[in-house]
Design a protein around this nucleic acid. Sequence first.
DNA 1: TGCCCGATTAACT
DNA 2: GTTAATCGGGCAA
Length: 193
Amino acid sequence: MSVLLRPSFFARSVHAVAPDLIGATLLVANSGGIIVEVEAYHHTEPAAHSFRGRTERNAVMFGPPGFAYVYRSYGIHWCVNFVCEPEGSASAVLIRALKPLHGLATMRRRRGLADVRLLCSGPGRLCEALAITNAHNGLALDRPPFRLLARDKEVEIVSGPRIGLTKAIELPWRYGLKDSRFLSKPFRGESEQ
DNA sequence: TGCCCGATTAACT
DNA sequence: GTTAATCGGGCAA
């Protein structure tokens, strides 16, 4: 039995929300799966898009929690974040990998014959599989086409440094489902939640 | 205005 | 292991 995540779920510190998203189910229309990897970003830290203040691109991060912030990465890929904390704090959780469960045929077609293991294992891959684009930027996470279901059992969570950064690389703000085959990269060491 | 770099990925050697 | 694809933001001039 699955419980829909309410906006109040996101009205907390990004450091509480990020690990709580591991094991939750993300659906966009009829495609999606279980979240197995996320990263937390906070505006007080230089790797965050919001660190240098509000711009046209990151404006959603400065709004209320419970909305999607979608940005273009390297000019090529889309990446999706969930905005956290009270309005104006400018923090968000980057969704980095899913275990594909729903709409597999549709996601395979969008990704072009991808091996299920690579279908949603990375922030750009997952957005391509779920057809998330800038059209989803600023949409509420508790309304269609989004559907977010809380995890219904306990999970083992590991954490470690975030991926692909040159700034604030020491912060262990990447969270994952322990031993998942669908992580974008394995976690080293075994730091538990 | 122009230049450099990035919360990435796939296709190379 | 390296590199190209491609574009918004930050910063120097």
